[in-house]
């Protein structure tokens, strides 16, 4: 289905061909769709009233996108239906700048897994916003992988609102080579809602990567977990911000956060800035950050079994991908991500 292009992002075509349940959006147009789910409808629009009521942002880039995105699609999962197979969604941008907007609506008691791959080639400006609403007792597994080339600049904003008893598990991987800012935000709107953001980011060369994860507790008995894992190599700069915010009166809520990162080389920089903003006494909250070189003791342990230093390092860094565990159950995706990783840390 791919049109010919010398600058097609590496490795992407074999991945698309190997997967089933695929939707490919190329420069804003759906060029391939192998989905055959009756419980899923795709429409070419942006649900403005939903966005106005649930996804107001103070970020001007997002505000602009939500008004003027050049391409917008809405994926809606019918209530009471769970899609067994994941939707593999490819968003590919070639040789042009674009703003795109996707909305996912997970109906009451519905469930879906979305694997989202954002690819673009050199020189593109990528402005991507997604909104997802998880209705009561719905469940969303949302895996976002970004792999953009070195000269690209990107702003990736994902927002999820979770209603009563709903669950949202978001995993993101930032594997690209361009400068990027990635925000992931979950609003827990109903009691017993659960939200998780697990992020892996790798930066190399002279790249600057800013990753922000925010979970806001706007109901009682809500649970939020943020985990951010990073590797900064060469002369790159990787920054993690994590915010767990519990509003006043939202008692019995749990906000947890963990940041872990490895700095390779002397010129790379990795900062973590975990924040807990809590306006309520009766909650459970905690955060931690561990940033440093590769753990010497871990390295020694692996080497004491005969692994070369390089192999030992590779395994340990690979280990940082474990938040993507579920996604990596798919061997094709696992191989793909590992090869991206190898390119980044070679």
């Amino acid at each position: 289905m791919q049109t010919e292009s010398v600058k097609l992002p590496r490795l992407i075509t074999p991945l698309i061909d190997a997967l089933t349940n695929v939707v490919v959006i190329e420069n804003g147009a759906i060029v391939k769709n192998t989905l055959s789910e009756t419980a899923l409808t795709i429409t070419n629009d942006m649900p403005q009233s939903l966005i106005d009521s649930l996804f107001q942002s103070d970020n001007p880039v997002v505000q602009h996108n939500q008004k003027a995105a050049e391409a917008a699609y809405t994926f809606k999962i019918t209530a009471n239906r769970t899609l067994e197979a994941p939707i593999n969604l490819f968003i590919i941008q070639k040789d042009r700048n674009m703003s795109q907007n996707l909305t996912f609506i997970v109906g009451e008691h519905a469930g879906v897994t979305v694997n989202e791959y954002i690819y673009g080639n050199d020189g593109s400006t990528v402005d991507y916003v997604s909104q997802a609403v998880v209705e009561a007792a719905g469940k969303l597994d949302y895996h976002g992988i970004v792999n953009l080339d070195a000269a690209s600049i990107s702003s990736i904003n994902r927002m999820v609102s979770v209603k009563q008893d709903g669950k949202a598990f978001i995993k993101t991987a930032q594997m690209g080579n361009g400068n990027t800012q990635q925000d992931t935000r979950i609003d827990l709107l109903g009691p017993l809602a659960i939200g998780e953001i697990k992020t892996v980011a790798l930066s190399s060369a002279k790249q600057e990567v800013l990753i922000r994860s925010i979970i806001e507790h706007k109901a009682k008995h809500t649970e939020g977990l943020i985990e951010q894992y990073g590797v900064a190599a060469d002369e790159s700069f990787l920054m993690f911000e994590g915010v767990g915010k519990i509003h006043k009166g939202m008692s019995k809520s749990i906000a947890k956060q963990h940041n872990k990162g490895v700095v390779l080389g002397e010129k790379a920089r990795l900062d973590a800035n975990p924040l807990l903003l809590i306006d309520e006494y009766d909650v459970e909250a905690g955060h931690g950050a561990a940033i440093g070189q590769i753990d010497e003791e871990q390295l020694y342990y692996l080497m004491s079994r005969g692994l070369s230093e390089k192999d030992a390092q590779r395994l340990i860094i690979n280990g940082y991908l474990h938040p993507l565990e579920k996604l990596l159950e798919n061997d094709i995706v696992k191989k793909h991500i590992e090869s991206l990783l190898e390119n980044k840390t070679a």
């Binding site: 871990q298 004491s304 395994l315």
Partner: peptide, 30 residues
């Protein structure tokens, strides 16, 4: 690592935890 490949093995008093690396991958690589 050269010592290990030469035939030495040390069962450690406090073995390290290495999250993200499966036992299988580790032993196979070794």
């Amino acid at each position: 690592d050269e010592r290990a490949r030469a035939g030495l093995f040390l069962a450690m008093q406090a073995p390290q935890e290495v999250p993200g690396v499966t036992n299988s991958d580790f032993i196979k690589t070794a």
